[in-house]
Design a binder for these strands. Structure first.
Length: 565
RNA sequence: GCGCUGUUAGCUCAACUGGAUAGAGCGUCGGUCUACGGAACCGAAGGUUGGGGAUUCGAACUCCUCACGGCGCGCCA
């Protein structure tokens, strides 16, 4: 039910289109002014009337439909109060129709590629990777929910001389049993050792380059070693993805594009875009006030941008995407601007559909940057298990009878961490602190999960049956608290749409907090289960709608909602 | 130096895209339980929205300018 449309159809202003009126309708900041309002200030000039007079005049001309209870002219605003019984009936029926578990919208035939997480081989998965992983994973679910086909791409960092160095270190100091046991940690230590040894023995650098050349040339033994490191890393990282509920449709990373760059380079050459500069080959972007985009090094080797151009072309050819998102930190703003501009200069009409979705930096308390080499890392695995342990401890205190404590603790602990990454605007920098990440009160996932469990508990006590509307008294939902909940419930699909358009899962997070808060207020003030059967039926339905919306919204944020906790 | 970005309560963040008295959480202080789950709810204190200018009936939001922080600016990715 689109109340703005009802109001826009209702109000007639000379020389102002219905669309314009629709766009002007907003929500008053305070409840006493109603659910919707039309500010009349901007019509003042063309109508040659004061806003107050306009609002007065409009009010006198209104013929109110059953959905609207009253209209009032207040200081230049035309305020509308809804008929709350009608609001409740229409609003709750609409949510109830979606069922206990919302299904994804019907397919719209559009594909959205999402490049996210993009782990580096032989590097630990630390909290610096949390944002891209959570944001991308959430956008993946949001687009699927809205009827798109999302394609998750993990653009692996699996190419470069660093891997030659790693092989070199492995050959010198590697211990298979240790690597088997400690996995990526052992690999990373080898890599760090290589660097410290190379300081005193410069020949090592050359050796590293030589091993990388062997990988490039397809030397059987070296490639086998490298492939094993790759498998090992992916196996380890998969455990994290499983805990976060994240999946990928493609692991085509840097090495995948080795044989796909030549055609792109040739095309650039053909189109006369490739020019020489200080021995390197670049695409000039001075027309756009940007530094040139480096395509080939002096020695003819390809670069980051070369690979991204090939990847974009490949994704376009393979997926025919509607949008191709790059969920990558804002450090690479310029890089993506350049790459997309080069695509545009190449005449790719789809260049405009390539979108960088930037997000802020993660640092440690005290302003320290994360650094793998300096050992300044907080492993995501450790953060997750710490959170889960804490959740388990709290469950043992608060709900010792609970079955499946471990499973619920996993949902709560992991949820808290993921939510902390998704609850604020992407672009803001984030200082990681255990204290904040492990908070389970206030604006957190456990608060939302708790509210969901509270709903579940009420529904089970009230013997609520999903889909059974039956005979109920809608008037009992006319109070402020109920109306707030129902108004919010009706905004859900708009919020998800907005989150998709802006690539901002935090909009859903904020919304869910509002919804949970308004429900908890409702809960405190109104008894759901009472002797009045019709009233009980209505309040149970409201509770069920809140529960299913919370559950669906949380799932779009990669968070599970237990029935009990 | 140039470019991008950020700056809102002690701290972390909102503000329906230019609307009415700028709202939440944490923290502080004070309340609400013989419970349909207290991981909750209510109240209080706390703001010149970084400074200054401009546009507008109206600005946290648009424009200009300054300050402070982050990031980036050719052979890494």
């Amino acid at each position: 039910m689109d109340y703005k449309k009802i109001i826009a159809d209702l109000v007639k202003i000379d020389g102002v289109s219905k669309e314009e009126i629709y766009a002007s309708i907003s929500v008053p900041p305070r409840r006493e002014n109603g659910e919707f309002c039309l500010p009349c200030f901007k019509f003042s000039k063309s109508l040659r009337m004061s806003p107050v007079a306009i609002a007065d005049k409009l009010k006198s001309e209104l013929v109110l439909p059953p959905e609207i209870q009253s209209a009032e002219s207040v200081a230049g605003y035309l305020n509308f109060k809804l008929n709350r019984a009608v609001l409740a009936e229409n609003g709750l029926r609409a949510v109830a129709e979606k069922g206990d578990v919302f299904a994804n919208k019907p397919s719209n035939g559009k594909t959205v590629c999402i490049d996210y997480s993009s782990v580096n081989i032989a590097k630990p998965f630390h909290i610096g990777h949390l944002l891209t992983t959570a944001l991308g994973g959430s956008l993946y679910r949001i687009f699927n929910y809205l009827g798109y086909k999302a394609v998750g791409i993990n653009h692996l960092g699996d190419w470069g001389t660093q891997f030659g160095k790693l092989v070199s270190a492995y050959k010198r100091w590697g211990n298979d049993a240790d690597i088997e046991k400690r996995g990526v940690t052992a690999l990373m230590e080898l890599y760090v050792k290589f660097h410290s040894e190379a300081d005193s023995e410069p020949a090592l650098e050359e050796e590293g380059r030589r091993y990388f050349k062997l990988i490039e040339d397809g030397d059987e033994e070296t490639v086998r070693i490298f492939e094993r490191f790759k498998e090992l890393t992916l196996k380890e990282v998969q455990k994290i993805y499983d805990r976060l509920g994240i999946t990928f449709d493609s692991y085509a990373g840097e090495s995948f594009y080795n044989d796909k760059m030549q055609p792109v380079i040739a095309e650039l050459e053909d189109k006369g875009l490739l020019i020489e500069s200080d021995g390197a080959k670049v695409v000039d972007l001075s027309d756009f006030d940007m530094p040139p985009c480096l395509i080939l090094k002096k020695d003819g080797a390809t670069l980051y941008a070369t690979r991204d151009l090939a990847a974009a072309q490949y994704r376009h050819d393979t997926y025919d995407f509607y949008k191709c998102l790059y969920v990558v930190a804002y450090q690479q703003n310029l890089h993506f601007k350049q790459v997309f501009k080069v695509l545009e200069k190449m005449g790719k009409s789809w260049a405009a559909d390539c979108i960088h979705v930037p997000f802020g930096m993660v640092s440690l308390e005290g302003g320290e940057a994360l650094s793998t080499r300096k050992g300044k890392v907080v492993l995501l695995r450790d953060v997750l298990s710490t959170a889960v342990e804490k959740a388990e401890k709290i469950i043992r205190e608060k709900n010792p009878e609970l079955e499946d404590k471990a499973a619920v603790a996993e949902m709560v602990g992991v949820g808290a961490i993921v939510f902390s990454a998704l609850s604020t605007s992407r672009i803001k920098d984030m200082v990681f602190s255990y204290d904040k990440a492990l908070s389970f009160e206030g604006e957190t996932a456990p608060y939302l999960q708790y509210t969901h469990a509270r709903c579940a508990s009420i529904l089970s006590k009230g013997n609520y049956k999903c889909g059974e509307l039956g005979n109920m008294d809608w008037n009992v939902l006319s109070d402020d608290e109920s109306a707030d909940v129902i108004t919010l419930l009706n905004r859900y699909d708009d919020v998800v749409l907005d989150a998709a358009e802006k690539y901002e899962p935090c909009l859903i997070a904020r919304y869910l907090l509002d919804l949970a808060q308004s429900f908890n207020r409702f809960y405190i003030d109104h008894r759901v289960i009472s002797d009045d059967k019709k009233a009980t039926a209505a309040r149970l339905l409201l509770t069920a709608c809140v529960k299913s919306t919370l559950k669906n919204g949380l799932s779009l944020l990669l968070i599970n909602a237990p029935e009990k906790m």
